[in-house]
């Protein structure tokens, strides 16, 4: 029954996304009534409230949506490539590379505001390095890629920690960045990564059947006609660009890329043709809600959004695992 409802789920999740975006722009230091928010969203005016919504709140909400969508797609791709449901977008060194990139920018060019771009480059470079190391002669083994990514991650993190200890005045900036958060977003900062995320996600979608095939193992994927190495390279590149674009916008936000593909698989099954678009929308919705909650946390004020995703995502993931175990033990 869960496999037939793709159109339904697409509709329901899109409604959730629209609702979450409206809620996301509703809250803020300046109270604006709901009806006015909706009216301004559809017809921007020159009023101060319209400027607040269109220039301050909406860029932030849009960034949260794009980051959530990008991480969910990237997580789904990594899970298919590595045939491991516990893979996440950061698994092959992306987070450590991004972290080191951010630290280097903060330490050496603090005035230039290069933390985001530098993290982007670090993230892609670390995945490239892991891929290069894992790719011996001929065919790349996905297990080797995980191990190489792990080693690269440890080394880059160690270098990052060392630099952080040398320059302790940057500790709190870097720390905030590593938990993840969306701060001071503008359309000007948003449009390049937004384009990258949207185009990257669309470029990944046609490879859905190949990703389904990877679930059966690389050898069987070859036998049924997948150009295994070329597709793996392309998907890894596209997923790491998506992750890097997300990291550029928001730092390292955890759990979205791991949990969202899981939840969506339960709704729509593991077929990527359905999984990818639903995961994008669900990831976007989840992060918009988490970010709104983080920004206006009752009684506290502002929290890093990465903390909220971990709070929400971690226990939910445990709940899913527990349910799955009971299902397996009960013989379906």
């Amino acid at each position: 029954m869960r496999r037939v409802g793709f159109a339904t789920w697409l509709g329901v999740l899109t409604l959730f996304l629209v609702a979450s975006i409206i809620i996301g722009v509703l809250y803020g230091p300046t109270p604006i009534p709901l009806m006015q928010v909706v009216a301004i969203l559809f017809h921007p005016t020159a009023s101060i409230n319209s400027v607040i919504i269109w220039q301050i709140r909406l860029p932030r909400v849009a960034a949260a949506a794009l980051v959530g969508g990008a991480l969910a797609i990237s997580g789904a791709v990594m899970q298919a490539l590595l045939k491991n449901p516990l893979a996440d977008p950061y698994i092959v060194g992306a987070s450590a590379g991004a972290g080191l990139g951010a630290i280097l920018a903060q330490d050496f060019f603090p005035a230039l505001g290069l933390v985001g771009p530098s993290a982007f480059i670090g993230s892609v470079a670390a995945v490239g390095l892991s891929y290069g190391l894992a790719r011996g002669k001929g065919r790349i083994q996905m297990l080797t890629l995980i191990l190489a990514g792990y080693a690269v991650g440890i080394i880059l993190s160690a270098v990052g920690t060392f630099l952080m200890l040398l320059n302790r005045e940057n500790l709190s900036t870097i720390f905030a960045w590593e938990i993840g958060g969306i701060h001071g977003m503008t359309w000007g900062r948003l449009w390049v990564p937004a384009l990258l995320i949207l185009l990257g996600s669309m470029a990944i979608w046609p490879f859905s059947p190949d990703m389904n095939a990877f679930l059966l193992g690389d050898e069987q994927a070859h036998h049924i006609g997948v150009a295994v190495e070329r597709v793996q390279f392309f998907l890894l590149l596209a997923a790491s660009l998506l992750t890097a674009a997300a990291v550029y916008l928001s730092g390292l936000i955890g759990f979205v890329g791991l949990v969202v593909p899981h939840v969506v698989r339960r709704l729509s099954g593991p077929q990527h043709r359905r999984l990818l678009p639903l995961a994008f929308i669900a990831g976007a919705t989840f992060l918009v809600i988490a970010d709104t909650l983080a920004e206006h946390f009752p009684g506290i004020g502002t929290l890093p959004v990465g903390l909220i995703t971990a709070f929400l995502g971690g226990p939910y993931f445990l709940y899913l695992l527990n349910r799955q175990n009971r299902r397996a033990v009960g013989g379906m």
Partner: peptide, 24 residues
Amino acid sequence: SVVPQSLSTNFDLTVEEVVELGRL
């Protein structure tokens, strides 16, 4: 086409979805 000795997957593809993969 190749029929291997055995095959396992961590993901719960249905039987029909596995057979459909042959059409890729």
